[in-house]
Amino acid sequence: MVELQTSRLDTVFHALGDSTRRRMLRDLAEGERTVSQLAEPFAISLAAASKHIKVLEHAGLLRRDVRGRTHVCRLDPGPLATAHQWLGIYERFWTERLDVLERLLREEDAKKSPPKKSPTTKGDDE
């Protein structure tokens, strides 16, 4: 199902590929922000911030409402769920591989360690 949405995933991962846009999404996770508020933490113009916002909009990661002259943005987490689902395939892959590695290392450690001797009591040697 996720593979059928390849172009959508490409768009989402492209949007997430930029640290400025990831920071904007992190800020939006805390609540609505204006374009000015999203641009504030960066040394970028409002025009540059607007370009980043358009990429996020195109990916479906944010919604922008125009209230008078103010553009208010809010997070739309839906596409992140799709990306998370896709990444989950690889999470399972690595979890399984690491579980096998852990088992092999434990087996190797068990072979190397000498068997534990039971404590002897005085007089057993006599």
Rank of each mutant, 00 (worst) to 15 (best):
E32G: 10
E126R: 12
V100G: 13
L98I: 11
R92V: 06
G60F: 05
E32S: 11
V55L: 13
M1S: 07
I44D: 07
A48G: 15
K117R: 12
S118M: 11
K117D: 13
K51A: 03
Y90L: 04
L25N: 06
E3F: 05
L25F: 03
T6P: 07
E107C: 04
K116L: 03
K116N: 03
K117Q: 13
L28K: 07
K117Y: 10
V72D: 03
E96M: 00
A43E: 00
E32C: 10
Y90K: 03
L61M: 03
R33F: 05
K51E: 01
W94A: 05
C73N: 11
A47R: 07
L98M: 10
P115Q: 01
L25I: 07
S113Q: 08
T34C: 04
L87R: 08
T34N: 05
R64M: 15
A83T: 04
R97V: 04
A59L: 10
R26T: 15
A110H: 02
T34L: 10
F13V: 02
L62I: 12
A59G: 11
L75M: 09
K54N: 11
P41I: 12
V66C: 15
D27A: 15
V12C: 10
K51F: 00
D76V: 00
R69W: 09
L87S: 06
L62T: 15
R21P: 04
D76H: 04
A59P: 11
E3T: 01
H14L: 15
I53L: 11
K54Y: 03
I53P: 13
R97A: 09
